[in-house]
Design a protein around this nucleic acid. Structure first.
Ligand code: MN
Ligand code: MN
Ligand code: ZN
Ligand code: ZN
Lengths: 155, 155
DNA sequence: CCTTAGCTGATAATGACTATCACAAAATAC
DNA sequence: GTATTTTGTGATAGTCATTATCAGCTAAGG
């Protein structure tokens, strides 16, 4: 709870600094994002969770809030295979987007917090004269559960 | 032209083996994909190019053909920031998807054919017990042109 | 021929997202 | 204080990429 509170304060601070009001709707949206920090929720999913806390919020407002939070780099907008935008909290303000492991069988998404791309980026900048700002890396494969299950089925 | 022809033959072969007919619509779609090998075309863009070769093809047919080609791993379906599906030819049947450099200023997409992720994959498989099948890696930043332009503007 | 399965094109439907607009709340001016 | 502008909200209509539907076409086999 303590970590959540301090994250909450930091985010509110950032909104404030950027000249945005701290409306109840925005506070609730941030609250949901913090509570589901590990998930990768779509706008619709966030909307439903916020509505369960306070009926009467509009879907458009959730989209607008997510847009603001994305601009301020508080969250990152990601799209995996299904083409639906998902929002990933960027607490501890990581310099670069972390990576993901997408299971092709069950659809689960796991996080990889280590960056590991530093050397590769240097290579890219040198060989392609491309200035790297950020990256998106997703591995497709089988998660622990699904690869175990596959083995027992086959064995 | 020779390389194009042989690729064409291989793709037709794969379609045939999988039990699909080699209709004129499918041939033209493959032709466009081969001609624009370096590009990352959307379904709509492919549709227009095919239609310019032979009026009277339907958009739905292009979508259906792209779906088949994706299933057969002849092309890969990718989505960058705008959420629109783009199709990337997988000739020389690369084992893993190649990488991309997306310019945040002009939107240009450049290809990176070296894999470079082999070591990282081993690390992922070991640390996360995740079986890696493929990956999607895009670097976001400034392309050669845009970073040069930026420098002269500032200087 | 006749039949069947695969394929096509037009078009309707879906669903994620965006724009619009009248109204409310807050900040600022007077 | 009240007036006025700015910011934010919710409902809802619109957009646009993609998918589903369906009647008609085509090729293959008897
Ligand atoms: Mn994540
Ligand atoms: Mn490519
Ligand atoms: Zn799984
Ligand atoms: Zn550029």
């Amino acid at each position: 709870m303590k970590k959540l509170d301090s994250s909450f304060k930091i985010i509110k601070q950032k909104l404030h600094e950027a000249g945005f009001k701290l409306t109840p709707q925005r506070e609730l949206t941030v609250e949901v994002l913090l509570e589901k920090e590990k998930d990768h929720l779509s706008a619709e999913e966030i909307y439903l969770l916020v509505k369960s806390k306070n009926t009467g919020i509009g879907l458009a407002t959730v989209y607008r809030t997510l847009e603001i939070l994305t601009e301020l780099q508080i969250i990152n907008k990601l799209t995996f295979q299904d083409g639906i935008a998902r929002y990933d909290l960027n607490m501890n303000s990581e310099k670069h987007q972390h990576h993901h492991l997408l299971c092709l069988k069950c659809g689960n998404i796991e996080e990889v917090k280590q960056d590991m791309l530093f050397e590769i980026e240097k290579e890219i900048e040198r060989d392609y004269q491309f200035v790297v700002r950020d990256h998106r890396l997703t591995f497709h494969g089988l998660c622990r559960n699904c690869s175990n299950r596959q083995e027992t089925e086959e064995g």
